[in-house]
């Protein structure tokens, strides 16, 4: 009797819990977005009225609120950080995509003795605590006399992005019929032609997926970048952490909202790609 009663109660309880779970995930973020339109400059969490002023301030516009409380005092710095982030993410994505894809192809299409070692080598960077990798790279760059800047950050990002590309492309390769490549060879194509005309087009969705993932992770990386960025090469997350550490100001809500929109767009694009090639 109690069992039947419990079972009856179970499903609504589970759904209720699910709703709470989603609320936990999304309420904090939605709060930031909503309050980025709040005009109260003193207490961010007390609603005054709707305004776009923080966004206008952010891009160097003049608003009445600006005299009251201006925080992101130099829009230039913010834009420079954004520029650095985009440059780093683009360069790191290209490099990591080449490294990860070629390794994935090697692992999927050849049998060799060191395969276990390579699997480990590509797995460890993903589970390595980022602070350890960050300081190890810092010691390395300073010791080797490599200037801390865009190049050092790109190198740092590639050490772990390669693994992500490798995993995504490997998954794609595993789902592919190797006989197609044999057929191409039987029809007289050489290895390069087979790769270019057969293998690459088939794994392309995986490669693009891996590249998008790399791009997002690179744009978002905070810890490793924090240790190996120079004075003149602050990325957006590091810049924002600096802002938050100095104090909470309304403009940060606006920056946060813009960044959320940006990552949602890229993530949706990635998922769209994935679902499209599943058809």
């Amino acid at each position: 009797m109690t069992t039947a009663f419990l079972r009856k109660l179970f499903n609504p309880l589970l759904s209720g819990y699910g709703a709470l779970f989603m609320l936990f995930l999304y309420a904090p973020v939605i709060l930031v977005v909503v309050y980025s339109f709040n005009s109260n400059p003193v207490n961010l969490m007390i609603w005054d009225h709707f305004t776009f002023d923080w966004y206008i301030n952010l891009f160097g516009g003049d608003t009445p609120l600006k005299d009251d409380i201006s925080y992101v005092d130099s829009t230039d710095q913010l834009l420079a950080a954004l520029g650095t982030s985009l440059t780093v993410a683009a360069l790191a994505t290209i490099t990591a995509t080449v490294l990860g894809t070629s390794t994935a192809v090697a692992m999927a299409r050849y049998r060799f003795r060191m395969q276990g070692f390579y699997r480990l080598l590509l797995f460890v960077p993903m589970v390595m605590p980022d602070i350890v990798l960050g300081i190890a790279l810092l010691i390395f760059f300073v010791g080797a006399g490599i200037h801390l800047g865009v190049i050092s950050i790109v190198i740092g990002h590639c050490t772990f992005l390669t693994s992500y590309v490798f995993i995504v492309v490997s998954a794609r390769l595993a789902g592919m019929n190797p006989l197609i490549e044999s057929a191409s060879a039987d029809l007289g194509a050489n290895e390069w032609q087979t790769f270019r005309r057969v293998t690459l087009p088939l794994i392309l969705p995986g490669v693009i997926g891996g590249a998008l993932l790399s791009f997002i992770i690179s744009m978002d990386d905070l810890v490793i970048t924090y240790f190996i960025s120079g004075v003149d090469s602050t990325t957006l997350p590091v810049f924002i952490m600096g802002l938050i550490r100095r104090g909470i100001k309304p403009e940060i809500n606006a920056i946060a909202t813009l960044m959320l929109v940006f990552s949602i767009v890229i993530a949706s694009a990635g998922i769209y790609f994935k679902s499209r090639n599943a058809d």
Binding site: V32, D220, A256
Partner: peptide, 9 residues
């Protein structure tokens, strides 16, 4: 996929 620092903020 969205910024960790923003979610902490």
């Amino acid at each position: 996929f969205s910024s960790m620092i923003i979610r902490l903020y």
